[in-house]
Each structure stands twice: as structure tokens, then as C-alpha cells.
Design a protein around this nucleic acid. Structure first.
Lengths: 161, 161
DNA sequence: ATAAAACCTCAAGTAATATTGAGGTCAATA
DNA sequence: TATTGACCTCAATATTACTTGAGGTTTTAT
């Protein structure tokens, strides 16, 4: 039958318990372990055991992921931190400040794009000369085989004056 | 030898010309074609030829991608639009309004996260009861993501005092 | 005419982020 | 004790968005 979960918080957690409490799949925890994001030790029967602080680590990973940071970068940021005790306030401050800056940049970029879209809804163009999103093709045709992606600047400059 | 590009804008474009002018790789244009995002006809020798308006279509695709919309969704949005003549103002308005809304939602979600981060830099928590990062409501509620919420007790302090 | 550049198709590879499955072991309980 | 659920490893598959390569054809420049 179903194991009745012991409501006392255990000193060590099985992978299933971590999965349940953190909201990530067991397979994902395995995966994170291969990437060095989390660590475990094994019991007599080769089963993973985790310290409770792994939950905080997973939480941090998920926060970082939501900001759009790739796992490899998260792994690197976390690599300097201990697996066996909680992050200090200082640890967290350093991480969150870095990630906040990146998030700010992302938001800014998306907002600029959104504003261009807004303008273009107003003017209903995209085919007109005044459109900020206009004719990236003509701009690009001037330059040879340069950068492949159209950066934001290629869509700016409505030549409003 | 190197083909000297004819500076007059041609009526039809080769795949290489589209690549150069749009800034995406030839292989990407092939790929987009398999996904129905763009279309071409063939000349006598089976080579692709594009109308000039394909450049605008590619530009729209790239704008949409920058907002974070997956290609499949872009393909669907574009599927109702003609390949052989420019988007009308109305077409563009409908697309851009839809995408703007999605972009707004994403920005809002990221901003909420950023604000949580800001708060948490101040309080140095992530482990305290009051931490807003404990509950990733803004993104997860969008996804209708069943049992993924992180329960409160997983973040309680081990033995802070 | 010939050589180089550009093009063609189709298959496979890449990278990130996981999930699924096969085949087998361990642990909790009726 | 026997069963069942949880766990183990390792390989394969999935998804998105492309890129690379092999082997062959067409177009363009000289």
C-alpha cells in the first residue's frame, strides 16, 4: 500500500521526497546531478540521499531558470557554493544581484520590442517608410556577410524628425 | 569569380540573396520552407526563387521570435496570410496586437520575478516564510501547471536559532 | 568551354532540457 | 515472506531550431 508520509521533516531525503517537495521530476533530479547542479550520497542499497538544503538549491535553480538563464550558467554560478549547508545571505545576494541585472537587460530588450510593436499597431504599417520595423532588408543589403541576426537596432530609427 | 551584386533591386530573389538581405542563413530559409513559414517557386533548373515580399515575411518571423513565440505558433499566425503580396496594414495590426499581448504578459511575469529578486536581495532570504520567491505564482498559474507549486514547509529554516 | 560559385536533396548532427523505457535491485508492508 | 512501490543505470527518444555534410546539378564569369 501507499507509504504514509511521515510528517516530521526527515534529516535526509530520498529522491522521491525531493521530487515531491521541490516539484521537479525524479528524472530531472538525476539529470541535474549529472550536470553537477545538485549532489547526493548513497545509502547501503545505492539509493540517493539528499540533505534537506537540496530543496533550497533546487528552488534557486528554478528561480534562475525563470529568468531565462541556461542551466550551464546556473551550474557555474552555483559551483562555488557548498552542497551540504544552506546558502548564506551573502551567497544569495551575490547570485540574485547578478541574475537581476541579466533579467533587467532582458526585460529592457523585450520592452523596447514591445514599444516598437505598439507604435506599429498605431501606424498600421510595416510596409510604410515611417515604420520603425520597416525594411530591415534594405538596411542589411548594404552590408555584406556580417552578423546573421538582426539586432534590435535594425528595427529602430523611425526617422521621426 | 565573385558575382558582382546587381545593385538594382531584382524582381525575384535567389535563396542566397534572401539570405544576405534578411540576415538568415540559406539553410534556415530551407528549414523555414519545410515548416511552411515561407514559400518559393522554382526556376527551370529547380532553384528557388522568391518574391521580394519574402523579406518582410522573414522580418516578421524574426520579430515574433524575439518576443519568444515558438516557430510553430508563428507559422500558424502567418498561415492565413498570402505569400505572394505584402501584408496589409490590417494583417499586421492583427498579428502585432496578438504578439504584443503575449509580450506584455511575458514582460509582466519577468518583472514580477525581478521585483521578487530585488526584495530578496534586501532581505537575504529565500528561506524565510515571507519570501515571495517561495511561490512562483506568476509563471506557473499561466501554465495551469497542476501540482508544481512549491509547498511552504520546504523552505523553512533548518535551525536558524 | 571550363571552372568556380551557388544551388539542390536528404540524412545526420548539435545543443539544451529534459522524459521514457528496459531490465534489474531495494525497501516497506500485508 | 511475498509483493509492491520506489529506486537504480544506461540508452533512447522528444522538442525546438537549426547547421553540417555528402554527393550531385545549375548558373555565372572568364
Amino acid at each position: 500500500m501507499k507509504k504514509t508520509p511521515d510528517r516530521r521533516i526527515p534529516l535526509e531525503l530520498t529522491v522521491g521526497e525531493v521530487a515531491e517537495r521541490s516539484g521537479v521530476a525524479v528524472s530531472t533530479l538525476h539529470f541535474y546531478e549529472t550536470k553537477g547542479l545538485i549532489k547526493s550520497w548513497r545509502n547501503r542499497g545505492n539509493q540517493r540521499r539528499y540533505p534537506r538544503v537540496v530543496l533550497r538549491r533546487v528552488a534557486v535553480i528554478k528561480v534562475a531558470q525563470r529568468t531565462g538563464i541556461p542551466l550551464a550558467d546556473i551550474a557555474e554560478a552555483l559551483s562555488v557554493l557548498p552542497h551540504d549547508r544552506p546558502l548564506t545571505a551573502k551567497d544569495w545576494q551575490r547570485l540574485s544581484e547578478t541574475w537581476k541585472r541579466q533579467l533587467d537587460a532582458r526585460i529592457e530588450s523585450l520592452t523596447a520590442l514591445r514599444n516598437h510593436l505598439t507604435d506599429c499597431i498605431g501606424c498600421g504599417c510595416l510596409s510604410m517608410h515611417e515604420c520603425p520595423l520597416r525594411n530591415p532588408d534594405d538596411v542589411l543589403s548594404e552590408q555584406g556577410a556580417g552578423p546573421r541576426l538582426l539586432p534590435l537596432e535594425d528595427f529602430t530609427e523611425p526617422s521621426a524628425g
